[in-house]
Amino acid sequence: MQQISRRAALALGAAGATLSVIGWGRDAQATPDAAKAEIAKFTGGKAATEGKISIELPEIAENGNTVPLAISVDAPMTADDHVTDVLVVAEGNPNPGVATFHFTPLSGKADASTRIRLATTQNIVVTAKTSKGAFYTASKLVKVTIGGCGG
């Protein structure tokens, strides 16, 4: 009798585990439009010029849970001409926002590196604002093998 109940308990446990895996459905994704809206908020609707920004990302990210990202903006970083803010958005994550970096002339360079989560294959868009009020933009496609947003 005891044997059977133990087996039943195990079966229940296994069923529970399967259910919880199925339960990790993916929530609604951000769209390129949501990313665009986020960028428009950042630029105040001003147009951004292509260029001045380099983005380092792997072409193929096997694990979307931690993808190395390095950005670098070409700027003199003097008191009257420097990059003040850099916005990073992801077009295919549940939320488009990734990070905003804030620089000062004391930064020396408008460079920053971090590690990000990517739910799926998508474009990463980087937009930079300078102290003179100019905006620059660049984007890069990353192929993601295993998504990193909890399922």
Binding site: A90, N93, N95, G97, V98, A99, T100, F101, H102, F103, T104, S107, A112, T114, R115, I116, R117, L118, C149
Partner: peptide
């Protein structure tokens, strides 16, 4: 330097 971070970090 400062950074505003989102859950995608």
């Amino acid at each position: 330097f400062s950074a505003t971070l989102e859950p995608a970090i």
